[in-house]
Design a protein around this nucleic acid. Structure first.
Lengths: 333, 333
DNA sequence: ATGAAAGCGCTAACAC
DNA sequence: GTGTTAGCGCTTTCAT
């Protein structure tokens, strides 16, 4: 910048202003400076700007996993609005470990990001680290996987209703003993789905509400053996709702292996955005979350918070509904 | 930092050194400083450090799309090594538009990132923007989708051989008229796969090598109609290799719609890492790229370049082989 | 409309 | 082992 200034015989402040298209600078000077910058291949140093302005122009996204269609789509939504705002996006993958999540949150609490979007791990059992962020005045918005009981804005789907609906669907299709496969009893979205499911059984007086929620630790080998046990016990279910995509996939593989016929012996509904649902064998009935819009909306709320930098900790809650798409895996005989 | 210094009655440089665990500082002082930092909730400002050190501690990844299993897995690989190195990862999605790619590359050429990993769009037809990065002395490594003809390190899979193998596989399974569905004639990985395919037909004197490569523009509606046309023309193929995941999925959906029996009337092999391959209807024969390792290796090479900051523009090329996994979609009658 | 100068928070060279 | 100081590249206030 100094070089540029010398070259053009103007001051650095003039350059800075010109590069920011300030109205204080004449068009002629602006053009001269812009041209010279281009010619000399000069660009502002973003970190010097950040340091001076105390804004990084960056947001961080902390999420469990990117190799999951839901999260990929959500990132697309987030990125679409960040791009429009001229912001950069840092991605952190917690891999479902709360210890990673905490250190990542701490990393973001150094001024590195102007705001954080977060989808918590299935282990996350307290919200202190997240509250600390807010306390230090850096805006946070949950997308999809919220942590309940703390005043943080969030964009989620209608988990309870979807859980309810999934049970009704299985009952309608003739299931006598439907079961909800939960991935974690500390993950609130999962619990809400489970609660909706259970409530439906009670309302309709079907199945065994008290025994209808089966928890299945993630981590593949253990998960698989738990599913196998479930599918071979005496009062085995004739209908299963998979609370997350991964469980649905495992269920299919295991059913195939155990030669259990879907939907004949077992009907399946999965919470999932997986694109291959219509071409699976059999095609899979899914409850599809509006992943892109969840990400997009969460980012929009975050930017609203970033832009009005007052300390208004309003807790905005947006609920975007999921859609049940019926396919062969839950077909009535 | 100044506050901390005042509080503890030491100098700022002592603090800086202590926080970086310098051997110049006594353990007692270090502990005192670390404790106080924790107590006062103090952390280094990363942008001030970046400014001073002329290193950002950040790498950028530019890729077409994250909602694609291959890229998701590659990101996991990249992130795993970035994390180990204590680096942060900026993600940019070009959405297959070269114009986006160019502006993203330019963004990265401001000192924002210490190195760039890039998988080019299917539109990218020159490497100038990328050469400019290298010229400005910021290291670049291609992962998977390289741009050929410029001296940039790259980590790719054995595309030619895999293409060759895919043709041999279809021929072995009895196909008389196998076709390779290409997504773009400017994407080098796709061309290499196609070239391998064609070479196999020539070597084995099967099919119609000159007409065996069919290009299919991406962008969904057009793509679908092109596939339909292919599947209903007079000399329609009895075997297809889908050059990328998305094409394979579309092919399945359309075949289902058109009631074409797989593998009876049409055998399919897809370049894909999709997890649902074994539970598709029918299960899908895939050529699986080592996505995680491609990302991981590319990141490792990038860090090697970042760390030895000399201007050695050695062009390192790593080829990690793909694996053909045979399933029902290509089964012999 | 332009320029001078202070300072954002840190690091590193050097002095003690 | 600890302190002093210059300066990274920029923005912004104030002066002209």
């Amino acid at each position: 910048m100094k070089e540029l200034a010398k070259e053009l015989k103007v001051s650095v402040s003039t350059i800075s202003k010109a590069l920011h298209d300030s109205h204080e600078i004449s068009d002629r000077t602006k053009k001269k400076i812009l041209d010279a910058a281009l010619r000399l291949n000069y660009t502002l140093n973003p970190y010097a700007s950040s340091l001076r302005k105390k804004r990084s122009g960056t947001i961080a996204v902390i999420l469990p996993e990117v190799a999951d269609n839901f999260f990929s789509l959500a990132i697309n939504g987030i990125q679409s609005v960040a791009e429009k705002k001229g912001y950069h996006v840092l991605i952190y993958l917690s891999h479902e470990k709360v210890i990673n999540e905490k250190s990542m949150v701490a990393e973001c609490n150094t001024g590195r990001a102007d705001g954080i979007l977060i989808s918590v791990t299935s282990e996350t059992s307290d919200g202190e680290h997240i509250m600390k962020l807010q306390h230090d005045n850096i805006p946070v918005v949950f997308f999809d996987r919220e942590f309940e009981g703390i005043p943080v804005s969030r964009v989620v789907t209608n988990d309870f209703e979807s859980g309810y609906l999934s049970a009704i669907h299985l009952i309608d299709k003739g299931c006598k003993n439907p079961v909800f496969l939960s991935i974690s009893s500390s993950l609130s979205i999962c619990n809400k789905r489970a609660a909706g499911f259970k409530t439906a059984l009670i309302d309709k007086k079907k199945g065994h509400p008290a025994k209808a929620i089966v928890e299945c630790k993630s981590g593949n080998s253990e998960m698989n053996s738990q599913i196998k046990k479930l599918l071979s016990r005496k009062n085995k279910p004739d209908g299963i709702v998979a609370s997350v995509e991964r469980l649905g996939m495992s269920l299919y593989l295991i059913a195939q292996e155990m030669k259990i016929s879907i939907p004949g012996d077992l009907k399946i509904v999965a919470f999932s955005t997986v694109e291959t649902a219509p071409i699976l064998n059999p095609s899979l009935t899914t409850i599809v979350q509006p992943a892109f819009d969840i990400g997009k909306t969460a980012a929009e709320i975050l930017f609203k918070k970033i832009e009005k930098r007052e300390k208004i900790l309003t807790e905005e809650i947006v609920i975007l509904p999921s859609t049940l798409i019926e396919r062969r895996s839950s077909q009535k005989k």
